[in-house]
């Protein structure tokens, strides 16, 4: 690699690791660092010396990241808000579609009686999945994981205070998310969804059996399939939102 290319690569790495959300500011920093090396180096030996004098790349990138940390945090919160809103909207849409009933004689559309409970469970699963998704993101970050799990716990606590009946649903949803997360590591994509639906159905069946609530295997399978659809739609949304978020910080061509 030519010295000039090595310097350009070094600058690109620093700019990328600085997590600066504004393209104009990234370009400005790149141009500033480039002019620094332009002046600091004349010959190849000078260039190598300039790179050495410049200091540790990771340390400088980290210091720059600190400078722009709040911009990053704001974008990250916006990303989470977008993921939550879009995923809940998709989950509710799925629940509405499967719970919509038509009374032909009266020509009335109405939602099945169990809609609100099913919708509540779907929303809880969505929130749990987003929590696991962010907490387990690589590279693993202990503070991020603690914050998202704490936020999920706060939501659970708020539900506990507002709707006493919602606690059982949240516990069920949390266990379903655990099962779903475990299943998502098992098999490749199409069979993974099948395993996930079966696991959800089995968990719901056992849960209702333990609570002495009538819930046949076919109903459990249906409910598992619906939750599987909610899970899949949330995963698709999270991937899209993640890609959009990553694009904000992508380095631009110099």
């Amino acid at each position: 690699m030519r010295d000039e290319d090595a310097v350009a690569a070094l600058i690109d790495r620093i700019v990328a690791q600085a997590h600066i959300p504004s393209r104009a500011q990234r370009d400005d920093l790149r141009r500033e660092l480039w002019t620094h090396f332009e002046e600091a180096s004349g010959s190849p030996d000078d260039t190598r010396d300039a790179v050495r004098r410049f200091g540790a790349e990771a340390l400088i990138a980290e210091s720059l990241r600190d400078v722009y940390r709040w911009d990053y945090v704001l974008w990250y919160l916006a990303k989470i808000a977008a993921a939550v809103v879009a995923s809940i909207a998709a989950a509710l849409l799925i629940e509405v579609v499967v719970n919509l009933r038509v009374e032909l004689q009266a020509e009335v559309w109405r939602l099945a009686p169990g809609f609100s409970r099913a919708a509540g469970m779907s929303v809880a699963v969505v929130l749990g999945l987003i929590t696991v998704w962010e907490a387990a993101r690589r590279p693993f970050n202990r503070s991020r994981a603690a914050i998202v799990v704490g936020a999920y716990a706060a939501v659970c606590l708020a539900v506990r205070l507002l709707f006493l009946s919602g606690v059982g649903a949240l516990l069920t949803a949390t266990s379903l998310v655990g099962i779903g997360h475990w299943c998502s590591k098992l098999a490749p994509w199409p069979s993974r969804l099948l395993v996930l639906v079966c696991a959800f159905a089995m968990a719901l069946y056992v849960n209702h059996f333990l609570l002495n609530v009538a819930f046949g295997p076919s109903r459990a399978l249906m409910a598992g399939a619906i939750l599987g659809a909610v899970w899949a739609s949330t995963v698709v949304i999270l991937r899209h939102v993640d890609r959009a978020f990553a694009r904000i910080f992508e380095p631009t061509e110099s």
Binding site: L29, R53, G55
Partner: peptide
């Protein structure tokens, strides 16, 4: 007093902000 040259930029950007 020979600073690592790269350390000056985060400081400048922070002070500018």
């Amino acid at each position: 007093l020979q600073l690592k040259e790269g350390t000056v930029y985060p400081a400048l950007h922070q002070m500018e902000r």
